[in-house]
Design a binder for these strands. Structure first.
Lengths: 152, 152
DNA sequence: GTTTCAGTTGAGACTCAGTCTCGACAAGTC
DNA sequence: GACTTGTCGAGACTGAGTCTCAACTGAAAC
């Protein structure tokens, strides 16, 4: 194990506690991945994460990184997004059902709750004759900060 | 050019007219791709399309297939979906803004219009402080046919 | 009819995200 | 200490999608 990975570097972090609560071992590579994710402000791609791990000389292999990501997706603390460009990205988030708004300029994301969407989905169910079991809404635009910067 | 590709095989087809209207050449490979897409009932993946082209011995290269798909996406007559499995799929559709409901069992898709979604998006805009320029809603469930089959 | 030229093609190499396998290691249990 | 189970890194592999390049096509200009 690479000495650069030290448990404790990301002690206070909801991702770590989600791992622990679910009964998974809090190994050094997992803590390191959790820490990398926690330091990201908005969404990130798998290769962003791999590059960050390389920069910090964490010595985490690609396979381990993807395994950790899968685990965190399964636990609901990370979600996979599909950007309009077709790229896959990941965002840290709360485990409850919600949707993401992604800033097209800086990559910041915000989580939003239902906000009347469920009504629209029920209406669509009625229109289409489908029984809708799952839905995914992704929104893209400009965040508060980028809007302010554009206006000034 | 492979003699199996004969223009006219897909004469009456909205995809073909969209190509023509946009000023693109109606070449045999493009007509063949349009025809392949038109014969698909629900969504399909790029490799489905490649396999179908191979079965019919159309002699269309992968690059040409992807080029044709890109073109049709640009024209808005085909849309790219992200299935819950993480796979990319494509669906033929109308160029106007709409959303897709995908049957998780048989793959059939239905297009639905806004149905009150815009109100929800405005509310989310207010909540989050973002200016939302684009959104994508995908819904997954069971279509009328699969529901009936399940019930019986 | 010939020439020209942009648009289009197929072949195949390439990239990149994500998966899989395998042998090694580490922690907990007996 | 032996065993079991979970986890690890290395590296090969897969498959979608892209890129390049030389060849071809067809419409327009001459």
């Amino acid at each position: 194990m690479d000495p650069a990975i030290l448990p404790g570097m990301a002690a206070s972090n909801s991702i770590v506690s989600a791992l622990g609560d679910a009964g998974y071992r809090l190994t050094a590579p997992r803590l390191a991945v959790a820490d990398l994710i926690a330091t990201h402000d908005g969404h990130f791609t798998a290769s962003d994460l791999a590059a960050a791990a390389r920069d910090r000389r964490l010595g985490i292999s690609r396979a381990t990184l993807f395994r950790a990501l899968d685990l965190l997706i399964e636990l609901g603390v990370v979600e996979r997004l599909d950007l309009p460009t077709g790229e896959h990205a990941y965002v840290p988030c709360a485990p409850a059902h919600h949707h993401h708004v992604v800033c097209s300029r800086c990559g910041r994301t915000a989580e939003v709750d239902d906000a009347g969407l469920l009504g629209a989905v029920r209406e669509i169910e009625r229109q289409s004759g489908f029984r809708i079991d799952a839905h995914r809404l992704e929104m893209f635009g400009l965040c508060r900060h980028c809007l302010a910067r554009t206006a000034s």
